[in-house]
């Protein structure tokens, strides 16, 4: 399946679940509503034509006004690639855990919670693991984060 075929297939089969974002140069980026995330992911994984069984990556993004969670998926057997994006509010963001769909998501979601402060619901082990155990300075990957010993690179 080429990317154009993939786009067509998705617009035919997932019309109200996924909206194509205009960022895709090489691979399509789709927006998914936070409430529908787990259901869509499950369908994508079990779809015979797509079989997105490979969870590549999950990255949080803080754009300053809102939070985003970007899921990169691939399929081992069908050789496809797809990115999903969930747009969240900046404060008190919440997202459902997809670890029942892909167990691999477990640590990525912990990281999302730890560095961005996005609360992951239904996660079995939401504990600190990258930062020191006694860390109390908030969520360091946020754009507005600051600390006394944090030195920014001076502009050249």
């Amino acid at each position: 399946m080429t990317f154009d075929e993939l786009k067509e297939y998705i617009s035919a089969n997932y019309p109200d679940d996924m909206t194509l974002l205009d960022t895709g140069r090489c691979e399509p980026f789709y927006e998914v509503k936070a409430e529908k995330l787990v259901a869509v992911c499950k369908r994508l994984r079990d779809d015979e034509q797509l079989k997105f069984d490979y969870f590549c990556n999950l990255g949080g993004v803080d754009t300053g006004e809102r939070m985003e969670a970007v899921y990169s998926l691939a399929s081992y057997s069908m050789k496809l690639r797809l990115d999903l994006k969930v747009i969240l509010p900046h404060e008190n963001a919440e997202i459902d855990s997809v670890q029942e769909v892909w167990p691999a998501a477990n640590w990525y979601e912990r990281e999302l919670w730890e560095l961005y402060g996005v609360n992951v619901k239904n996660h079995n082990n939401l504990t600190r693991f990258l930062l020191p155990d006694d860390w109390d300075q908030g969520f360091p990957m946020r754009k507005d984060w600051d600390a006394p010993d944090f030195i920014r690179m001076p502009e050249l």
Partner: peptide
Amino acid sequence: FYYDSYSVEK
């Protein structure tokens, strides 16, 4: 990692 790193001991 002197600049911009929140977790490295300087």
